[in-house]
Design a binder for these strands. Sequence first.
DNA 1: CGTATGGTTGACAATCCTCAATCCGGGTGG
DNA 2: CCACCCGGATTGAGGATTGTCAACCATACG
Lengths: 238, 238
Amino acid sequence: MLAAASDSSTTDLGGSLAAPDVPGILLRAGTRFRVRRGQRLPERHADDLVHYFVCDGSLYLQNELPERRRAIVATYYPGEFCSMLMAGEGDGESLMAAEAGTVVRVKADTVGQLASADPHVSARYGRWMEVRAARVEAHAIVVGRLTGEERVAAYLVEAVQMRGETHDKAIQVDLPFSREEVADYLALNPDTLSRFLTRMKADGLVTFLGHRRAVVTDWRGLLQRCPISDLLLKVYQR
Amino acid sequence: MLAAASDSSTTDLGGSLAAPDVPGILLRAGTRFRVRRGQRLPERHADDLVHYFVCDGSLYLQNELPERRRAIVATYYPGEFCSMLMAGEGDGESLMAAEAGTVVRVKADTVGQLASADPHVSARYGRWMEVRAARVEAHAIVVGRLTGEERVAAYLVEAVQMRGETHDKAIQVDLPFSREEVADYLALNPDTLSRFLTRMKADGLVTFLGHRRAVVTDWRGLLQRCPISDLLLKVYQR
DNA sequence: CGTATGGTTGACAATCCTCAATCCGGGTGG
DNA sequence: CCACCCGGATTGAGGATTGTCAACCATACG
C-alpha cells in the first residue's frame, strides 16, 4: 500500500504529488529473501530492529495468549510494509508468513533515516500507517460486533478485494490462510467457522475448489451479508 | 501522544532529537473550542476535512451498525490527535466527545502542509500513527480473544494508565465512559458488563464512588486478570 | 425532596465453543 | 496411474458463555 494511489477523501500530507519511487528506495536499502509457509519473521536481525516489505505472498501479525488462544490481528499483502511497532516478541507477538513468498528486510533505523532525509518517504510512511490503523479499526469492528456469519462474509470480502481474480462471472480467490488461521483472524473457532462456510455454500454464495481456493458465486449477496462491507471496500484496496 | 516521549524499542524516524514544539505548531494553526458530553465532532468544517487535537476531556471514535449495534473503536486522551482517516460519516463512523472538554480543530490540509514543510511534524505524525495502530491492534485482541471479565480488566488497566490518580494505596479513576459506552468499547452488552463489574467488586479488585469513579483496590490482581496487561501498559502511556 | 436517567439483577434464550468421530484432499510410494 | 495415508476440514451432541427482556434500584439533577 506504500505503492498505492492516495485516497482523495483523506489527507495526503503533501507527499503524493510527483512522488519519487518510495518503495524502490526502501527496497534497495534492504535484503530480499524467500519465506516458506508458517515461517516466523524475527523482529530483529543481528540486534537491529527490522521491518519487512512484502514482495510476494502474504504475512500476518499474530499474538499468542495463554491457553492456546491466538489472535491474528492483521494480514499484509504484496506491496505493503509491516513491523511490530510497539509490541514485541516478549508480548507474544510475532510476524508470520501465511504462505511461500518473498520479502525484503529493512533495518528500522534505515527506514527512519530515509524518512527524515526524504519528505516523500516520510509522507508515504505516515500515509501507510493511516491505512494500517484504519484496517485494524475495521478489523476490531469485525471481531467485536459482527456475528459469526457476518465475520466470515467480511473475510471473504477482504480476500476478494486483495487477491480476487474474475473468471467468467465468478470470482476466484486463493485464500492465504488455513481454516485455523482464518478462525483466529475472525476470533472464531475452526469448527464454528466450518459450519458457517457450509451454510454459505448451501446458500449459494461461495464454493470451494479444494480447501484454499474459494469461488465467490454471489458477490452482491456476500456484500449484503456483511454490515460493514462499504468500509471494507474502502480500506482494502490493491 | 504527539507530545509523549518516544519509546526506545521502536523507530523514531529521526524526529525526536531536539524536536521543536510540534503540538504547539499544530495548535496555533487551528481553533480551540469547548465540547460537551455526547457531542458529535463533524468530520468537516466548512467543506474542509478536519482533525481534532484533544486538550482536555476525551473523545472516542464510534461506528454505528444496523440493529442498534455500535462499536467504539478507540479512545483519545488529552495530548492526542484524532481524525477519521479513511472511513467517513457515510460509513457510520463518527467522533464523539465522551465528556466535557476542549479540543482544537485543525484543517487536514493544514496538517498536511505543516508536515510536508517540517520533518519534525511529519515524524511526529508518523510516530503517533504507529501508536494509534498499536493501540487498535491491542483493542482488537481485547474484543476478539479475551473473555468478558478479561475485557473489563483490560479496560480498567487502560483507564488507570491514562487517567489514574494514586490516593493512599488505592488508585482512583474518573471513567470517561458511561456503562453503555464501556460496553460498546469492550464489545459486550451493558447488562453483562454490569455483572462482571459486580463480580470484580465482590472479589475486592475495584470499588465505585458513584457510577463513574472507579477505585482500584488491587492493581496487581487486576493486571493478573488480563492476559495482555503487559501489552496494554506499553501502548497506553501518558 | 422528587423525578428521570442510567445502572443492576434475574430468568431465559441464543450463540458460540468443546470434544469426539468422521470425512476428504493432497501428497507419497508402489 | 492408482491405492494408501496423513493432516486438515467437517459434522454432531452437549455445555459454557454471553445476549435479551423486564423489573427493580440508585445516582445525579432539578
